[in-house]
Every structure is written in structure tokens, then in C-alpha cells.
Measured scan of single mutants.
Amino acid sequence: KELVLALYDYQEKSPREVTMKKGDILTLLNSTNKDWWKVEVNGRQGFVPAAYVKKL
């Protein structure tokens, strides 16, 4: 599985998104969309802005 690092805090704005804190390590589930990547964090799956994370 591929991991990404949260570069910034992000507060979810819809049920399809997830909240993350700067420094969190997230599991990358899908990065086919250039703007929104699907990740898993704390057992929850959802989208975060691709610009807010970096592949490890």
C-alpha cells in the first residue's frame, strides 16, 4: 500500500471528505483525480485535496 504525508491541516467540508492534521501519515487509496485523492485515516475513508499531501 502507498502512504502519503499530510503537509497541512484539512477540515472536512462534506461527508465524502476526511479531516487530517499536518504530519499525519495516511493510506493512499486512489490518486487518479489530480485534485482530490482518496485516503484512509483513523479507519475512515474519504477525499483530501491532492495539494495537501505528498507521497512517501
Rank of each mutant, 00 (worst) to 15 (best):
1 K>L: 15
1 K>M: 15
1 K>V: 14
1 K>S: 12
1 K>A: 13
1 K>T: 13
1 K>F: 15
2 E>S: 10
2 E>L: 11
2 E>D: 11
2 E>C: 08
3 L>K: 12
3 L>C: 08
3 L>R: 10
3 L>A: 07
3 L>E: 08
4 V>S: 04
4 V>P: 00
4 V>D: 00
4 V>T: 03
4 V>W: 10
5 L>D: 01
5 L>F: 09
5 L>K: 08
5 L>R: 08
6 A>F: 01
6 A>I: 02
6 A>R: 01
6 A>C: 09
6 A>G: 03
6 A>W: 02
7 L>T: 06
7 L>V: 09
7 L>H: 04
7 L>N: 03
8 Y>P: 00
8 Y>F: 11
9 D>M: 03
9 D>S: 09
10 Y>W: 11
10 Y>R: 03
10 Y>E: 00
10 Y>K: 01
10 Y>G: 00
10 Y>Q: 01
10 Y>M: 01
10 Y>D: 00
11 Q>N: 12
11 Q>D: 12
11 Q>W: 13
11 Q>H: 14
12 E>Y: 05
12 E>A: 12
12 E>P: 14
12 E>Q: 14
12 E>S: 14
13 K>F: 06
13 K>G: 08
13 K>Q: 14
13 K>W: 04
13 K>H: 09
14 S>H: 15
14 S>Q: 09
14 S>V: 05
14 S>G: 13
14 S>W: 07
14 S>T: 11
15 P>H: 13
15 P>L: 09
15 P>N: 14
15 P>T: 11
15 P>G: 13
15 P>A: 12
15 P>V: 11
15 P>Y: 11
16 R>S: 14
16 R>P: 06
16 R>Y: 15
16 R>A: 13
17 E>V: 05
17 E>H: 07
17 E>Y: 06
17 E>L: 05
17 E>A: 06
18 V>M: 10
18 V>N: 05
18 V>W: 06
18 V>C: 08
18 V>A: 06
18 V>Q: 03
18 V>E: 01
19 T>L: 03
19 T>M: 04
19 T>N: 07
20 M>T: 04
20 M>G: 00
21 K>T: 11
21 K>N: 10
21 K>Q: 10
21 K>A: 09
21 K>G: 06
21 K>V: 09
22 K>M: 10
22 K>Q: 12
22 K>P: 03
22 K>S: 08
23 G>L: 03
23 G>Q: 03
23 G>V: 00
24 D>G: 04
24 D>H: 05
24 D>S: 08
24 D>F: 05
24 D>M: 13
25 I>T: 07
25 I>M: 07
25 I>S: 03
25 I>L: 10
26 L>T: 01
26 L>Y: 12
26 L>I: 08
27 T>Y: 12
27 T>I: 15
27 T>H: 12
27 T>S: 10
28 L>V: 07
28 L>E: 00
28 L>C: 06
28 L>W: 01
29 L>H: 07
29 L>T: 05
29 L>E: 03
29 L>S: 03
29 L>D: 02
30 N>T: 09
30 N>H: 09
30 N>Q: 11
30 N>L: 10
30 N>E: 15
31 S>M: 11
31 S>V: 07
31 S>E: 13
31 S>G: 12
32 T>E: 15
32 T>S: 12
32 T>F: 11
32 T>V: 11
32 T>R: 12
32 T>M: 10
34 K>M: 13
34 K>I: 10
34 K>V: 12
34 K>G: 10
35 D>F: 15
36 W>Y: 09
36 W>E: 04
36 W>H: 03
36 W>D: 02
37 W>Q: 01
37 W>E: 01
37 W>N: 01
37 W>R: 02
38 K>I: 15
38 K>P: 02
38 K>Y: 15
38 K>Q: 15
38 K>F: 15
38 K>M: 14
38 K>R: 12
38 K>G: 06
38 K>N: 07
38 K>T: 11
39 V>H: 00
39 V>R: 00
39 V>S: 00
39 V>I: 08
39 V>P: 00
39 V>G: 00
39 V>Q: 00
40 E>L: 09
40 E>S: 09
40 E>K: 06
40 E>D: 10
41 V>P: 00
41 V>T: 13
41 V>R: 15
41 V>F: 11
41 V>A: 13
41 V>C: 08
41 V>Y: 14
42 N>V: 07
42 N>A: 13
42 N>L: 11
42 N>E: 10
42 N>P: 09
42 N>R: 12
42 N>W: 08
43 G>E: 09
43 G>R: 05
43 G>W: 04
43 G>M: 06
43 G>P: 04
44 R>M: 07
44 R>H: 09
44 R>V: 10
44 R>I: 09
44 R>S: 07
44 R>K: 13
44 R>F: 07
45 Q>R: 12
45 Q>V: 13
45 Q>D: 09
45 Q>N: 09
46 G>A: 04
47 F>R: 04
47 F>A: 03
47 F>D: 04
48 V>C: 04
48 V>A: 04
48 V>M: 01
48 V>S: 00
48 V>P: 00
48 V>E: 00
49 P>S: 02
49 P>V: 02
49 P>E: 01
49 P>L: 03
49 P>R: 04
49 P>K: 03
49 P>G: 01
50 A>Q: 06
50 A>I: 03
50 A>F: 02
50 A>M: 06
50 A>C: 06
50 A>P: 05
51 A>K: 12
51 A>W: 08
51 A>E: 11
51 A>D: 12
52 Y>L: 14
52 Y>D: 03
52 Y>N: 06
52 Y>W: 07
52 Y>C: 09
53 V>M: 06
53 V>W: 01
53 V>E: 00
53 V>K: 00
53 V>L: 15
54 K>S: 13
54 K>W: 10
55 K>I: 13
55 K>N: 09
55 K>W: 07
55 K>P: 11
56 L>S: 04
56 L>T: 08
56 L>Y: 10
56 L>C: 08
56 L>F: 09
56 L>A: 06
56 L>K: 04
56 L>D: 04
56 L>G: 04
